Lab assay of single mutants.
Amino acid sequence: SIKEIEKEEIIKVLKEVNFNKKLASEILGIPLRTLYKRLKEYGI
């Protein structure tokens, strides 16, 4: 599903940037606030 793909992509990017959420949100092209929402939604 799209949610699974998105979750995997978020985890992959977070690992690449050593869990720097600000940098991860910039790489993913989403606002930091949205990233936090996704992390909560996906239980990351």
Rank of each mutant, 00 (worst) to 15 (best):
K21A: 15
P31I: 03
E9A: 14
P31H: 07
I30R: 01
T34V: 14
E16P: 01
K12F: 06
L39E: 01
Y36T: 10
I10E: 01
L23T: 06
Y42R: 03
F19S: 04
E4P: 09
I2M: 14
L35A: 00
N20L: 03
K22G: 05
L39D: 01
L23W: 07
V17G: 02
A24D: 00
E41F: 07
I27N: 03
I2Q: 14
F19V: 01
T34P: 02
F19H: 06
L32W: 04
E4M: 10
L23F: 06
E8F: 12
E4G: 09
V13I: 11
E16T: 10
K21L: 15
P31K: 08
L28P: 00
I30T: 02
E41C: 06
L14C: 03
E6T: 14
I10L: 13
N20P: 01
P31N: 11
E9M: 15
L23K: 12
S1V: 12
K12G: 05
Y36E: 15
I11P: 01
L32A: 03
I2N: 14
I2A: 14
K37A: 13
E41G: 05
L14G: 00
I11V: 09
E26D: 09
L28R: 00
S1R: 10
L28M: 05
I30Y: 04
I30L: 08
E41P: 02
I11Q: 06
R38F: 15
R38G: 03
L23A: 10
R38Q: 11
K21E: 07
S25K: 02
K3P: 10
E16G: 09
G29Q: 08
V17W: 03
N20E: 03
Y42E: 05
I5W: 14
K21Q: 07
A24L: 03
K7P: 06
K7H: 08
K15V: 11
K40I: 13
L23G: 02
E41T: 04
R38V: 15
I11L: 14
E6G: 13
G29F: 03
L28A: 01
L35I: 04
I30D: 00
K37G: 05
E8Y: 13
K37T: 07
L32D: 02
I5N: 13
P31S: 15
I30V: 06
L32K: 02
I30H: 01
K37P: 02
I10T: 08
G29A: 05
I10F: 09
E9P: 02
A24T: 05
K15H: 13
I44W: 10
I44H: 05
L32Y: 04
L35Y: 01
I5H: 13
I44Q: 05
N20I: 04
I11W: 10
K15Y: 11
S1F: 04
K7L: 14
K12D: 04
L28D: 00
K37H: 09
E26S: 09
E6V: 08
I10G: 00
K7T: 07
I27A: 06
G29N: 09
K37M: 12
E41D: 09
L14R: 00
R33V: 11
E41I: 06
I5M: 14
N18V: 04
S25Y: 01
V17F: 05
I30W: 08
V17K: 03
K3V: 11
E8W: 14
I2Y: 08
K21I: 15
K3C: 09
K7Q: 07
E9W: 15
I2H: 13
I5Y: 12
K22Q: 11
L35Q: 00
K12Y: 05
V13M: 04
I2V: 13
N18H: 10
L32Q: 03
E16N: 09
N20D: 12
L23H: 07
K3A: 14
E4Y: 10
N18T: 03
N18L: 08
I5P: 12
K15G: 07
